[in-house]
Design a protein around this nucleic acid. Structure first.
Lengths: 107, 107
DNA sequence: ATCAAAGTTTGACGGCGGTCGTACTTCTGT
DNA sequence: ACAGAAGTACGACCGCCGTCAAACTTTGAT
């Protein structure tokens, strides 16, 4: 278990990798939850319907793409959205995910 | 061969579908080429390195996601980027693709 | 010390999507 | 009418990715 996982720098952010991360509904849901909560969330506290091992996989993909930052707090792992850095690299991208039509549209 | 292919309305644009379309490098390249050219382009005139049948597949995916509009001109098929409509549905999304870091970054 | 909680790792499985070749259609010139 | 150009349709193949269960690790509480 790597206690200090590697996080890519902003200058290394890769659009292909970011899109591959965001195209999965579960991962996009994680990002949205982080964005709306405006606070760090532990892996287990997310509203996702997959097994723990699958969740670990998703968090890894998000972290390696640069979308989240992870750090340990006791036995829990906290997840923080790298909003500002992602906006710097790809301005408008995360905003597009929060668009009304991006969620369920009604009107 | 359907001469009047169906195009989804803006209100029916689906983020999941759009992201699935944009996550493929070939398809994203098509979108970028349309965006920078600022004019409609025939299927055969794109700079993509896949077979014709694969190209047809990609254009279909882009069309069904609402990213492009297709219409026949003689035996050729023209492709137009649905820029304004996509911006209306998911503002900022296409702009993020044109970001400097979205292309090859140097500095 | 022990036990439970929270994640991780590994391996396996299944399905979907990108790719191609081949055959087909439709239009344009000649 | 014929040939060629431009795409399309259809199968087939293959690799990748999301998924899970099971075993393991690490930390915190009792």
């Amino acid at each position: 278990m790597d206690r200090t996982p590697s996080h890519p720098e902003v200058s290394k952010f890769n659009l292909q990798q970011v899109l591959e991360a965001l195209v999965d509904p579960v991962r996009r849901s994680i990002v949205i939850q982080l964005d709306t909560a405006c606070e760090d969330i532990t892996c287990g506290a997310f509203d996702i319907s997959v097994s723990k091992s699958t969740a670990t996989h998703h968090f890894k993909v998000l972290r390696e793409a640069g979308l989240i930052r992870q750090y340990y707090v006791g036995t829990s792992r906290m997840n923080a959205l790298r909003r500002a850095e992602m906006d710097q690299a790809f301005p408008g991208l995360l905003d597009a995910l929060a668009t009304p039509q991006a969620q369920g549209v009604s009107t």
